[in-house]
C-alpha cells in the first residue's frame, strides 16, 4: 500500500511536470500557467499531513527545478513547495476536507509558493525582476491555480485517499 501510494504520488508529480510544460502553455494567460505541481503537493499534503507534505514538496519542487524548460537556480521551487507542503499539510484534517477548505488551501498555497519562489529569486538576483512583475505573476498565478484547482485537486484527493487505509468518509 505504501509503495503504491508513493508510486502514484510520484507519477502524479511527473505528469504534472510534463503537463505544466507541454500542455498548459496553450491555455496560459500572459504566459502564466496553473501550477499543477503545486496542486499535486497540496493534494498530497492534505491527505498525508505536513510531514509527507514537506518531503513531497521538496522532491516535486526539485523535479520542477530540474525539468527541461527550467533555467533558474535549482532549489527555488524545492524550497517554495516545501513550505507549501508544510502549510497545506497543517490544515486541520479531522474531517474530510470540503470544497471551500480545499479551495482556500489551494489559494493560500499558491500565494505562498509563488511568493517564496519569487522572493528567493529576488534575493538571489535570479533573474533580476521587479517587484511589480513579481506581484502580477503571483496574482495571475493565484487566479489560474484557483481555476484549475477543482479540476485537479478533487480527483487527486479522491485518488490519494483511496490509498489511506483507514479513511472515513461521511
Amino acid at each position: 500500500m505504501n509503495a503504491a501510494r508513493t508510486a502514484v504520488t510520484a507519477l502524479a508529480v511527473l505528469l504534472a511536470v510534463v503537463l505544466q510544460a507541454a500542455l498548459l502553455p496553450e491555455l496560459s494567460w500572459r504566459g502564466v500557467v496553473p501550477n499543477l505541481v503545486l496542486l499535486v503537493v497540496v493534494a498530497g499534503a492534505l491527505t498525508r499531513g505536513p510531514n509527507v507534505g514537506v518531503i513531497l514538496g521538496f522532491c516535486a519542487g526539485l523535479a520542477l527545478d530540474l525539468a527541461p524548460p527550467a533555467d533558474h537556480l535549482a532549489g527555488r521551487w524545492a524550497l517554495a513547495l516545501m513550505v507549501v507542503g508544510y502549510v497545506a499539510g497543517s490544515v486541520r484534517r479531522d474531517e474530510r476536507p470540503t470544497l471551500p477548505v480545499v479551495l482556500v488551501t489551494a489559494a493560500v498555497a499558491s500565494f505562498v509558493g509563488s511568493s517564496v519562489f519569487a522572493l528567493l529569486g529576488v534575493v538571489m538576483q535570479d533573474p533580476a525582476t521587479s517587484v511589480g512583475d513579481v506581484l502580477a505573476a503571483v496574482g495571475v498565478g493565484l487566479v489560474s491555480d484557483l481555476v484549475v484547482a477543482p479540476l485537479v485537486l478533487l480527483p487527486l484527493l479522491v485518488l490519494l485517499t483511496r490509498f489511506e487505509p483507514q479513511r472515513r468518509f461521511a
Binding site: 498525508r48 505536513p50 510531514n51 507534505g53 497543517s90 484534517r93 483507514q166 472515513r168
Partner: peptide
C-alpha cells in the same frame, strides 16, 4: 500544530514533521 486527525488517523506522518 500539530492537528488531530480522524479521517486518516494513527499514522506516524500525520504528526508535525
Amino acid at each position: 500544530l500539530p492537528l488531530t486527525v480522524s479521517w486518516a488517523p494513527g499514522e506516524a506522518q500525520e504528526r508535525r514533521p
